[in-house]
Amino acid sequence: MSTGTAVQDAAGRRDAARALLQRPILTATHDPDNFDLVRRHSAALRAMFADRLGYTLIVETEFARLVKAPLDAAAPLRPLHRTTGGDFGAVGYTYLALTAAALLAPGRGDQIPMSVLVDQIRADAAAQGIEIADGLSERRHLVAALQALMEWGVVGETDLGEDQDREDREEGEPVLTVCRSLLRHLTAFALHDLPGPSAAIAARPETPRRRLYRRLVEDPFTARDDLDPEALDVLIRERADLARRLDEDFGLVLEVRTEGALAYDPDGSLTDVPFPGPGTVNQAALLLISELVDIADPVPGSAVHVDTDTLQNTLSDLVAAHARSWRGEYVRDVTALRRDVTALLVRLGLARAHDDGLLLAAPAARYRPTIAESPQP
């Protein structure tokens, strides 16, 4: 193999691995280019993900599914997002599970009318003693679940035409086409075999090297205090090797400081939470960081504790200054804005929840805006 071909293959594997990290479900219909790239390098990718991260890569003719392993308890939570904004709550996940189960009900083919799906969801919920609301609330949760499944490529809407109407289909109602082979791989394993719900998210015993590598790949920032002694020892002794692997596998750059470690993407594209970014919550979080760092004036590399009153008052001042450009619901309810901004900072690894407020992590100071000086004429 020539040097040029080897370099191209390495770049292709890295691009395919980045695509899978960003979207663990790739389909031939929704993302044909990345799906073809993954199929081309599937053997190498399976070995790399299994060895480095303990992940399982499933590649079939219609889809590629990267099944990830649970992170440890100190890792930031990553809830599923609704397309309309906000996170899936307990009720949202309940509807998602009921919808997926109904689509896999015995005797169902690859197409199912919407009314039949709804009836199956209600029957399954009743059989399990799950109370679901009627009316608008039910429709909203069902739509959110179906939108998530459509985004993943599990279901799609089909127009059967007048000559293909089914007996169980109401006139004019939508019919869903189901990719049952992908649907079976949404979870890492069969849930009915588990002893209880907690077993589905329990982290498996792993080597310190794999635990550390997984945190570096998946988390924006890994605090030194979050690492157990074995993982910290790996970070210190194998720093150069870790940096090489992160660059070769995913194009990430490792930075290690006193407060912890960061594997960042110079391109800024490998993330599921763009920050800084557009929107009221992103803008408020960025400005809040700047204000809090100015107020606390912390020693470089140290975390900052911010009490709830300071958070509320600082955000209130920011809302007053930006009321015309920020979303009205947040302008009217600063407490809701504080909740969502705090959740964003925690998800990014830039803060931790605290009994009274939050603990702003040292890397948050990176996002403090600086004034660029214009050159003198």
Rank of each mutant, 00 (worst) to 15 (best):
E259R: 02
V175N: 07
V299D: 10
A320E: 14
L360K: 12
A261S: 07
V38Y: 06
D15C: 02
I130T: 09
Q312Y: 11
A6L: 15
V143Q: 14
R13Q: 15
R23V: 01
T187A: 13
F189D: 07
M150N: 10
D228I: 02
R215W: 06
G260Q: 05
G196T: 03
S302V: 04
A43Y: 00
D33V: 13
G301M: 03
I25F: 10
A296R: 13
A28F: 02
S137A: 15
N313P: 00
L254S: 07
D124C: 01
E291L: 06
A123D: 09
A365P: 06
G328F: 06
A321M: 08
E173T: 04
E167M: 11
Q8D: 12
D317R: 14
D228W: 02
R244W: 06
D110P: 02
A64T: 08
H185T: 10
S290A: 15
R65L: 08
D124L: 15
F189C: 03
P70Y: 06
V319R: 13
V334L: 05
D87Y: 09
A240Y: 05
E171L: 12
V341T: 10
Q164P: 00
D159T: 08
A285K: 09
D119W: 03
R237M: 01
F275Q: 07
A100M: 12
R244A: 15
M150Y: 03
D110F: 02
G109P: 01
Q164R: 15
L66Q: 05
P197E: 11
T5Q: 12
L345A: 07
D272F: 05
D31E: 11
P278H: 07
L186K: 09
R180H: 14
E170A: 13
L142R: 13
L311Q: 10
L142T: 07
D267N: 09
S269W: 04
